[in-house]
Design a binder for these strands. Structure first.
Lengths: 181, 181
DNA sequence: AACAATATATATCATATTGATATAATACTA
DNA sequence: TAGTATTATATCAATATGATATATATTGTT
């Protein structure tokens, strides 16, 4: 999903500023499926406004920078629905962790080990967040489905890593492959 | 991992042209963890050559465009090892599929259903590829670990989707949420 | 109380990545 | 024989990313 659609999606759940869109994507149900930074959000919102898909209200605040509150227009709502109906692209994963694991037999075992530890910590943190969200309840079936999906995947990863990590570290201790020729 | 490191990583397994690097990333063990297109590869290779991390041999071919064969230099090999030792960034997933599932209750059930079918097909295709690779045997422990990891995750996804899809479609049939105000 | 860090808020810049398109010949398929 | 796939490199426009700038209030630490 491109930045514009992500903004529309967040705004479909209520008006928000650019800053709030960022927070919402980071902390909300989009958290594990999307990333978005300010440098994507602000240009996207400008384009959406030009195209009449969102409207803006400037809010003067004391003590804080002024806020620009964006709201979906009816065109925007329609445009979101159409985008959601488009056929989905394949999921993409980019894993720094797995990339390195491919080279486990040419890296020092201590590094492999600490990378695995770090990864397990991350998985635990994510699971804690997902469980906390589940405990708070969901706003829609979709949110529940996605939360459960993410939790299932994280758990499967954790089990697999724990069951297979020793082989990786053992290989790192007894290297068998050179870094090409 | 940036395009330069990906190129170095592929070249660590033997010399290759830009075209071959692409194929190798798409079909090889990097397949489910990295994406890379020509428009990233060619500039990356130029930079690597400027920096002395790869060397080039031009190969004139009849019938085909000339080939530029890239080879790691010893600086390049060192640079790759250093990059691999750097701490890993968090894994990133971007899922068009899950993004849409979040809006299951405002989309037509037939669309939800066919998106789920398409996703299941994709998972099956990936699993077939991963199993085929496993049957051919692995070149390193790392490759085996990553292949098993990917297969485990795909299987967990398939099970979860099959067990929960009916709820999503049911929700789509009986919408309960509006597209905001 | 002083100081550092975090949260609120928008914006821009350089760099990196992506998707589309150009070019060109062979090999395979319907 | 027409169309598509494969081999091969390259560039361009549109996006996306990461870093940095700016400014103040609140919260946390020593």
């Amino acid at each position: 999903m491109d930045a514009k659609t992500v903004c529309l999606a967040v705004l479909s759940q209520g008006e928000a500023s650019g800053y709030e869109i960022r927070k919402s994507v980071e902390e909300g149900p989009f958290g594990h499926i999307q990333d978005i930074g300010f440098s994507s959000i602000y240009p996207a919102l400008s384009r959406l406004r030009e195209d009449g898909l969102v409207s803006v209200t400037e809010l003067t605040q004391e003590g804080r920078p002024d806020k620009k509150i964006y709201r979906l227009t009816s065109d925007g709502r329609l445009s979101l629905l159409n985008a959601l109906k488009d056929p989905t692209e394949s999921d993409r994963v980019r894993s720094d962790f797995l990339f390195r694991m491919l080279f486990a037999d040419i890296l020092p075992p201590s590094i492999i080990d600490s990378m695995i530890d770090a990864r397990m910590d991350e998985i635990q943190t994510r699971l804690t967040r997902l469980d906390a969200r589940a405990a708070r309840g969901f706003e829609s079936i979709g949110e529940e489905f996605v939360n459960g999906f993410a939790a299932t995947v994280q758990r499967a990863m954790a089990v697999y890593i724990e069951e297979n990590r020793h082989q990786l570290v053992a290989a790192a201790l007894a290297p068998s492959r050179a870094v090409a020729e």
